[in-house]
């Protein structure tokens, strides 16, 4: 009965993680030495549909009805493999022999757009959760 709340909660978790990763990208927009000594690469959350609970019953029901909804899950946090930016700055300690520094492939404007999109999706999930909560409490009125 409380599937709807769980599904919305999975949406909240996923969108929250998208915001965290976007914040990580923005914070590292100028990082020339990442964990592996290489310039930071932009990270992106890969979302996937989650299938409802395991077990034979759920699988059979899913096959017969076209799948009962299970929400969303994070499949991976992938690194963006687009080329790093080359910036001419000979005074930078990480500049190569020609004076070029490899900067992260983070586009701050695109990150801001991602941030807003994640925020709006988060709000949509909160609204869905409130609607489900309202419906459940209305159903309980039958007992009064």
């Amino acid at each position: 009965m409380f599937d709807a709340l769980e599904i919305s909660a999975s949406g909240l978790t996923a969108e929250r993680l998208r915001m965290d990763v976007t914040a990580q990208n923005l914070a590292n927009a100028q990082t020339t030495r990442g964990a592996d000594g290489q310039p930071y690469r932009r990270k992106e959350v890969v979302l996937a549909e989650r299938q409802a609970g395991g077990g034979f019953g759920a699988a059979l029901q899913g096959a017969m009805s076209g799948g009962s909804p299970g929400g969303v899950e994070v499949a991976a946090i992938a690194e963006d493999q687009t080329p790093l930016k080359q910036v001419y700055d000979p005074s930078h300690p990480d500049a190569d022999a020609n004076g070029y520094v490899q900067m992260p492939n983070v586009d701050t404007v695109a990150e801001m757009v991602d941030l807003i999109s994640a925020q709006r999706a988060y709000e949509a999930n909160v609204t869905a959760m409130q609607a489900a909560k309202q419906m459940f409490s209305k159903t309980l009125e039958l007992l009064r």
Binding site: M1, D3, A4, L5, I7, S8, S10, G11, A14, E15, R18, L47, A48, E49, S68, P69, G70, G71, V72, S117, A118, A121, A124, N125, T127, A128, M129, A131, A132, M135, F136, T139
Partner: peptide, 16 residues
Amino acid sequence: AQRQTALAANLANANT
């Protein structure tokens, strides 16, 4: 209630 579950799943997967 079942439909609410389906619609909630749609919103949760708005970016999938």
